[in-house]
Each structure stands twice: as C-alpha cells, then as structure tokens.
C-alpha cells in the first residue's frame, strides 16, 4: 500500500464526482422506498433497463444523456403501471404484504435481468459521445469528462427534485403522503393517486440515472446487483426520504469507495457500500439525516 497526499487528493476529487453520481442513481429509490415505503429492490434493475434503452437510442446517433431525457415519459408510465400493480396485488390486501411485496420486486428484478441477458447477451455495452474517453487536465490531476458530465447532471437532478418536492403543490402532497396517509385521506385527497404519481416520477428519474450509468462506464445485465447495495446504502444512510441527505450520503459512499479503490485495489471496492450499509443498519438505522 503506497500512501501519499497526492494520491489521497486524487481519490477525494474522484470520490466527490463519483459520490454525486451515486446520489443521482439513488434519488429515485429515495422517493419510492424512502418516501412511499415501497420495498423497491427492483429499482437498480429498472435503472439498468434504462441504460440499455439509452444504448439503443445512442446507437441511432443520439446523445446518451439526451436519450435518457427522452426515455423519461415512457418510464414515468412504466412506474405508474408498476405501482398500480403493486397496490392492487399487495398494498390493498394489507396482510403479509411484507414477504410477498419483497418477493414480487425481487422476482421483477430477476425477470428484467434475464430478459436483458436473453436480448442483449452478457457482453458489456458502451455508448459513444464526444465527452467519453477524453479527460480534463487540471494541474497534476486528470478528470475524465464523462465523470464531469455525470456530476453536472446529477447535481441538476438532485436540485430539481428537492425543489419539486418542497415548492410545488404536488411535491408537498407527496411529502404529506409519506408523513400521514390517513390524514391526507381525511382532507379529501386520494393518497393512492399521489403515490402513483410519485412512483412514476421516481421511475422517470431512474431512466436518466440509467443513461448516466452507461455514460460513466460499460454496462452489463447483472450490474443491478451491485447497485442494490449502493442505492440502498445511500437511502438508508440518508435517513429515509431526505433529498439533501441523499446527496450527502452519496458523497460519503463515493469518497470512501474511491479511497478503498485507490489504496486497496478494485477487488475490495464492491464491499464498501455493502459493509457501510450493514454498519448503518446495526448502529444508526434512522440514518444520518433522518426525520
């Protein structure tokens, strides 16, 4: 293990970029699991589905990030359908939704993953764009442009969602549904429709997140498994449903993973998110920025 201040600075810079990217891929889950309490373990699988659709559009000559934005309405509808199905089959029946709801989303993740393997094969897929493959020389440090693009989009996404949830009428309604569904019903609002809308937004955001995943690196169908750890780690660490907390936790994970990557090697990096997740669950399950 070689330790030097230079390497540490480089690890931290890369960690900040990586952390914002991680926050962006988790923010959909922060809404669906954090606010709506849906055990959405298929969130990373849906996101990787978004990466593959981005791959298809980008192959037609479109910019990958733009492709992600184009996919958002379709994914919104997909999200509404998934929630509707989940609600009718599990939430409405109430009893024992725990085991079955989880099994449902786990099965869904498997179906998406195997579906992708059957359609695209197990090979890694990449997209092409001007900012992929080159990097920005900043003194002694080299920062890949693809990370900068992901960083910018991630910040914009987090900011937009934070403002949406706190300033708009429907955003506040979503927060209200997370706090007290019964009270909302007494006010004459329909919590199911609000949750359906929120789940749609969360899924639409996953499409853009998926586009970022394929911009940052090559994508393969079974990649969602690693992101289960990263996304849930961030959402739990943030304290369920906190958007700014999601950004902060993303940074914590990104920097720790980057430091481990730099000083211990790539084979240890996947364990960081999962280890951190277990520690948080054991010590502080309400998260750092919990309500």
């Amino acid at each position: 293990m070689i330790f030097s201040l230079d390497l540490l600075t480089e690890a931290v810079i890369f960690g900040v970029l990586l952390g914002c990217f991680y926050a962006a891929v988790s923010i959909g889950l922060s809404v669906s699991f954090g606010l709506l309490d849906v055990p959405h373990v298929a969130h990373p699988a849906v996101m990787i589905l978004g990466s593959y659709f981005t791959y298809l559009l980008a192959n037609q000559g479109l910019d990958p990030i733009l492709s992600g934005v184009i996919l958002m309405p379709a994914f919104f509808v997909l999200g509404v359908l998934i929630y509707r199905f989940y609600y009718e089959s599990f939430e409405k029946r109430g009893s024992e939704a725990g085991v079955r709801g989880l099994a449902f989303f786990f099965g869904l993740a498997f179906i998406i993953e195997i579906g992708l393997i059957l359609t695209f094969g197990v090979d890694q897929r990449t997209v092409r764009a001007a900012y992929i493959g080159s990097s920005w020389e900043l003194g002694d440090y080299r920062i890949p442009y693809r990370m900068l693009v992901a960083f910018g989009v991630a910040l914009a996404l987090t900011l937009a969602l934070t403002i949406y949830l706190s300033k708009t009428f429907i955003g506040r309604a979503i927060k209200a549904v997370a706090q007290d569904q019964g009270a909302l019903r007494l006010m004459g609002a329909n919590p199911v429709r609000i949750k359906q809308w929120a789940f749609g937004i969360a899924t639409a955001v996953s499409a853009l997140a998926g586009a970022m995943v394929i911009v940052v690196g090559p994508v393969e169908p079974s990649m969602d498994r690693l992101y289960i750890g990263r996304t849930f780690c961030i959402v739990v660490l943030a304290g369920l449903g906190s958007m700014t907390g999601t950004l902060a936790s993303g940074l914590i994970l990104g920097i720790s993973e980057s430091i481990v990557l730099m000083f211990f090697g790539a084979s240890w990096a996947p364990a960081v998110a999962f280890g951190l997740l277990l520690v948080v669950l054991g010590i502080r399950p309400q998260g750092l920025f919990g309500r």
Partner: peptide
C-alpha cells in the same frame, strides 16, 4: 431492512 442486510452479506 433485514432483507437488504442479507443481500449485503452475500457481497461482503
């Protein structure tokens, strides 16, 4: 949380 924790254990 138990369910997610057990996924973490696999990867660790």
């Amino acid at each position: 949380f138990f369910a997610i924790g057990t996924i973490a254990v696999i990867f660790i």
